[in-house]
Amino acid sequence: MVANMTGKVALVTGAGRGVGRGIALEMAAAGAAVVVNDLGSSLKGDDGADTSPAQQVVDEIVQAGGRAVANGDSVASYEGAHEMVRAAIDNFGRIDAVVNNAGNLRDTLFHKMEEDDFDAVIAVHLKGSFNVSRAAASFFKEQGSGAYVHMTSTSGLVGNFGQANYSAAKLGVAGLSKSIALDMARFGVRSNAVAPFAWTRMVDSIPATTPEQIKRIEGLKKLVPEKIAPFVVALCSDAGAKVSGQIFGVRNNEIYLFSQPRPIRTAHTSDGWTPDSVAERVFPMFEKDFYPLHRSGDVFTWDPV
């Protein structure tokens, strides 16, 4: 087995259901001991914790002959993030991979979005990814190795309707991943972001009222969450040792490498710009290269395979 995780320890957040569950099971199948973290809350993340989803995944792993422990701490808590990393150290003696998968949704149109809707999503997706990554960083640095995988989204990379909070968080996650890759490369630590396409509780919450929306939802139902796991495990294994600072997408049997922002046009003047010269020269010069207001579904229009 090339992408082997034998002897390694992985922490997977939001691993009680959906994509996270698939990753935890695949990690264990590849030989890793797994800390299965899940708060067990609703999609909004505002109700009481229930660790039973995490424990159910642990039971599946143990019954298959693997090693795993459940953890119910919140990624939104800096102390909680340290507790889940400590669970890996206390139970298995080390930590080798962190998969930041935990998420919540508070979808609403921007002009109707409340501060709490924004803060709650940023706290889980972006701050949560920082919290857990930072908690593991000292161990990764000391041992001279480690792998991060952070879940981003085409809602942030491309755009989506009614998801200003989620889009901002997920594009922030891509930036966080790149910064970690740059800062920790000298310690043998790598960091990548993955945009998963999968039918999960979160996707199931998307409203569908028009025929077009209903058709899109039916297409999304074909996206199997377990299909994300093999790529994530490969990234975390030694086979992914030379892969860092990248943004990928996984959509059933398709794997994407996303572009990253770089300059595509320049305008220069020896006299310096004025508002009028910008309006007269720069806007017309750049206009043909402006990106349209695409949503994710406008870009990924073909049926998943």
Rank of each mutant, 00 (worst) to 15 (best):
residue 41 S to V: 15
residue 177 S to R: 00
residue 292 P to F: 13
residue 165 N to C: 00
residue 258 F to V: 06
residue 148 Y to M: 05
residue 74 S to D: 14
residue 274 T to H: 01
residue 121 V to S: 04
residue 232 V to F: 08
residue 259 S to V: 04
residue 194 V to R: 02
residue 23 I to Q: 04
residue 289 D to T: 12
residue 173 V to F: 08
residue 27 M to F: 15
residue 4 N to W: 01
residue 36 V to I: 11
residue 203 V to L: 12
residue 203 V to T: 14
residue 150 H to E: 03
residue 115 E to K: 11
residue 275 P to F: 03
residue 99 V to F: 10
residue 192 N to P: 11
residue 46 D to T: 15
residue 11 L to E: 11
residue 201 R to G: 15
residue 283 F to Q: 10
residue 20 G to Y: 04
residue 117 D to V: 06
residue 226 E to Q: 15
residue 13 T to M: 04
residue 114 E to T: 13
residue 214 I to K: 13
residue 240 G to S: 10
residue 251 R to G: 02
residue 15 A to I: 08
residue 224 V to L: 09
residue 15 A to H: 07
residue 250 V to H: 08
residue 159 G to D: 06
residue 277 S to F: 00
residue 295 R to C: 10
residue 146 G to R: 04
residue 265 R to Q: 13
residue 145 S to D: 12
residue 139 F to M: 02
residue 133 S to E: 03
residue 230 P to H: 07
residue 66 G to Q: 06
residue 78 Y to H: 12
residue 36 V to T: 07
residue 228 I to F: 04
residue 169 A to Q: 06
residue 188 G to M: 06
residue 130 F to E: 07
residue 94 R to A: 14
residue 189 V to A: 04
residue 303 D to A: 15
residue 270 S to G: 11
residue 117 D to G: 05
residue 19 V to W: 03
residue 211 P to I: 15
residue 260 Q to Y: 15
residue 75 V to Y: 04
residue 63 Q to H: 11
residue 108 T to W: 01
residue 276 D to L: 06
residue 128 G to A: 04
residue 264 I to C: 07
residue 153 S to N: 03
residue 105 L to M: 04
residue 85 V to G: 13
residue 88 A to R: 04
residue 216 R to S: 02
residue 61 I to Q: 10
residue 39 L to R: 13
residue 217 I to N: 06
residue 31 G to M: 10
residue 202 M to R: 01
residue 248 F to E: 03
residue 104 N to K: 11
residue 120 A to Y: 02
residue 233 V to L: 11
residue 185 A to D: 12
residue 40 G to P: 08
residue 226 E to G: 10
residue 144 G to F: 01
residue 241 A to M: 09
residue 270 S to A: 15
residue 10 A to L: 05
residue 61 I to D: 11
residue 52 S to P: 00
residue 261 P to L: 13
residue 81 A to V: 11
residue 151 M to S: 04
residue 184 M to D: 06
residue 66 G to N: 08
residue 256 Y to G: 01
residue 214 I to L: 12
residue 79 E to Q: 15
residue 99 V to W: 06
residue 46 D to G: 09
residue 76 A to F: 03
residue 86 R to N: 15
residue 153 S to Q: 05
